[in-house]
């Protein structure tokens, strides 16, 4: 098992290398000059050139890439062109809000999607099944910014139960942290819960038609035990896969959700960096996200071994 984890992590290195090259190339090809933005409207061409030189932007792309790789190998992602702060520090400041949001969204999604999917499969064609179909259609078709505004209007502006926006670090109290995260996490989890619910339902339906389920029923095992003990464990493979894949979707949707609820997370940092052409931040964030995605996939693979004793690495 440990050997497998090490191998998978080592395999991630070339993947991230390719990501680094692609990101660097795209940034190089994208129009926009941070020196021009920095210098302001009154700067002379000479001043802009001096700023460009001071930032190292006048060097050939291959030299800039080599320099970036060299620093990366030493754990240094460089400094923001605009604030001058180390990229690692800036990303570090944004990790807690994004991680909190993703964690809560994943918990809500699994906590609602899986039971809903199981119940819909158990009552195929019944009310719960139809309700799931309706919910998933809604979840798939409702853009995060519409859902976010709707939830904020009802629960924050009208009922005043929850705050409209912002993020409170966990150190300032669990309730404040949770109150600020509920609406964005629910917004973010709508699509994710819908996907998990659909996949759970389909997978459960397949398992529930197996012989050993019929045997269990014939033996008089109580229905909930059949569903959750016998069927769900065997149906969980595709669900775990979709949870892993869904994390990537969540990261993408988090950009919009963070913007709607003014959460100072990685998504907002990325958008601001792109708009300002703050190359070191963009490169750092993309690398971080690709690393996170690789790790999630490794975790998913390891989950398979817990769910299915036949799988060994």
């Amino acid at each position: 098992m440990l050997g497998y984890v090490v191998r998978r992590l080592l395999m991630a290195v070339p993947v991230m290398g390719v990501v680094a090259v692609v990101v660097f190339s795209l940034l190089y090809l994208t129009p926009g000059d941070p020196a021009q933005v920095l210098a302001g409207d009154t700067a002379t061409p000479e001043q802009i050139a001096r700023i460009r030189a001071s930032l190292g932007l006048d060097e050939p792309p291959y030299l800039r890439f080599a320099s970036w790789l060299w620093h990366l190998a030493q754990g240094d992602l460089g400094a923001s062109i605009f604030s001058g702060e180390p990229v690692t520090h800036m990303i570090g400041q944004r990790l807690q809000p994004t991680f909190s949001l993703l964690l809560l969204a994943v918990l809500i999604s699994i906590g609602t999607g899986v039971p809903f999917g199981v119940a819909a499969a158990a009552r195929r064609g019944g009310f719960l099944d139809q309700a799931l179909t309706m919910f998933t259609t809604l979840g798939f078709s409702l853009p995060a910014f519409i859902a976010g505004y709707g939830l904020a209007f009802v629960f924050a502006t009208t009922l005043k139960w929850l705050p409209v926006q912002g993020f409170v670090p966990l150190e300032q109290g669990l309730d404040a942290w949770l109150r600020n995260l509920i609406l964005p996490a629910v917004t973010l989890s709508l699509v994710y819960a819908a996907i998990i619910g659909r996949v759970t339902r389909a997978s459960m339906l397949e398992v529930l038609s197996e012989d050993y389920i019929r045997t269990a029923r014939a033996k008089g095992v109580v229905p909930w035990r059949i569903l959750f003990r016998h069927a769900l464990r065997n149906a969980a493979g595709p669900v775990v896969t979709i949870i892993g894949i869904g994390v990537a979707t969540l990261i993408g949707s988090a950009v919009i959700t963070e913007s709607v609820f003014a959460i100072p997370g990685i998504g907002r940092l990325t958008v601001d960096a792109i708009l300002h052409r703050d190359y070191p931040i963009i490169q750092g964030v993309v690398l971080l996200l690709s690393a996170a995605y690789v790790l999630v996939n490794v975790a998913v693979d390891l989950c398979y071994t817990l769910l299915d004793p036949r799988i060994r690495y």
Binding site: F153, A156, V164, Q165, G166, V260, A262, V271
Partner: peptide
């Protein structure tokens, strides 16, 4: 607070946040 979304900014002001 840097709130980039105008609707959120308005809602935060109206809510007294």
């Amino acid at each position: 607070s840097f709130i980039s979304d105008p609707s959120t900014a308005m809602a935060a002001l109206i809510a007294g946040e």
